[in-house]
Design a protein around this nucleic acid. Structure first.
Length: 336
DNA sequence: GGTAGACCTGGACGC
DNA sequence: GCGTCCAGGTCTACC
């Protein structure tokens, strides 16, 4: 065991934004089928800093980037067909639009779910389909890199430290990460070998060598996106498929140990005997979900989400901070 | 094209 | 308290 770095001991939620006093309030109309708790708690990133879900008040707290990257603390609540955003500072008109745009992205409020609901009526009944994501694609990419080759509890720690050490409480921006060195990032945020990849990506973004807006264009083809994502150092098949999902393309499964565990435990009910079996298993998983066509990922995720709820014995929107470090079927299986 | 090993952290476990 | 093992996805060198 290596010695711990002084000052890096961190309770998971110590950096979290305070509940804002409310000098300004914004309102956003939401579709009839929208549920804030289900949208927020549908994907694990809601448990990563600087997001904070309050299950008792059914509200989301976090910081967003305002004008000139100043940090705005927001509190998000649903009241019928509207979302109310309480902000801790007065906002100019342009800044209001910027904040709203980020909230719409996080909750996928502009997404049409009719075809998905037609494909999966059970998802319609639960209002499931708007998987939670970050206010920016950059944050989604960094969060995805921090989920790779690491236990979930460490992913949580890395994101908390990224906010505390470089983001001033909000999530680190490309400029903040580009200005540091891999060695510093590694030392302060415990990201290990990912430091080189994270700083490298941030620098390529700030130098204009990678245009993240290109990825968000609505008419991009999924294979075009996969090819471009796989060119980014540190993004492999799993991460690229995850990022496609976060961009609204559900054609590819992001197969990881969690996927295999879920499939083996709940569908196939038999363990593979060898590494060769494991390779065959991945092909088998692909074939199993192929019937969902361009909704493979959503169908798999809905299945997994229902399993979490069943194992935890309560609705996912009731999950609280102590549950957050055990957000995998393996952990749920041993702790519930 | 397929495969083995390195990358890095922190929790679990044995002593 | 210390040392060792292990899990986790990606990259790279080698066959």
């Amino acid at each position: 065991m290596k010695p711990s770095v002084p000052g890096n001991r961190l309770e998971p939620n110590t950096h979290y934004p305070p509940v804002p006093q409310t000098p300004s309030t914004l309102s956003i109309a939401v579709p009839d089928d929208f549920s804030l708790p289900i949208a927020v708690c549908s994907y694990g990133y809601f448990l990563l800093a600087p997001n904070r879900w309050d299950p008792d008040r059914q509200q989301l707290l976090r910081t967003l980037q305002g004008r000139r990257d100043r940090l705005i603390h927001i509190r998000l609540r649903q009241s019928g067909s509207r979302l109310t955003l309480a902000c801790n500072q007065p906002l100019e008109r342009a800044e209001q639009a910027k904040i709203k745009h980020q909230v719409i992205r996080m909750l996928r409020l502009d997404q049409d779910l009719s075809q998905w609901y037609h494909h999966c009526p059970a998802a319609r009944r639960r209002g499931f389909g708007r998987l939670f994501r970050s206010p920016s694609f950059f944050e989604d990419v960094i969060k995805t890199i921090t989920t790779c080759n690491v236990a979930w509890v460490q992913t949580r720690r890395m994101n908390s430290l990224l906010c505390r050490e470089f983001g001033g409480g909000g999530f680190s921006t490309p400029h903040q990460l580009a200005a540091t060195t891999p060695a510093q990032l590694k030392r302060k945020c415990r990201v290990g070998y990912r430091a080189q990849r994270i700083v490298g990506l941030a620098r390529r973004v700030t130098e204009g060598k990678i245009d993240l807006e290109w990825f968000e264009h609505p008419h991009r083809h999924v294979e075009e996106l996969m090819a471009a994502l796989l060119k980014i150092h540190g993004i492999g098949l799993y991460a690229a498929a995850s990022l496609c999902q976060l961009l609204g393309h559900y054609d590819h499964l992001a197969i990881d140990t969690e996927t295999r565990r879920h499939y083996l435990t709940h569908i196939r009910r038999a363990q593979p005997a060898s590494a060769d079996d494991l390779r065959r298993l991945d092909r088998e998983i692909e074939q199993y979900y192929a019937r969902h066509g361009s909704y493979r990922f959503l169908a798999y995720w809905f299945e997994l989400w229902q399993t979490y709820e069943k194992q935890r014995g309560k609705r996912s929107d009731r999950w609280s901070e102590p549950d957050a470090d055990s957000f995998t079927t393996a952990q749920l299986g041993t702790s519930s």
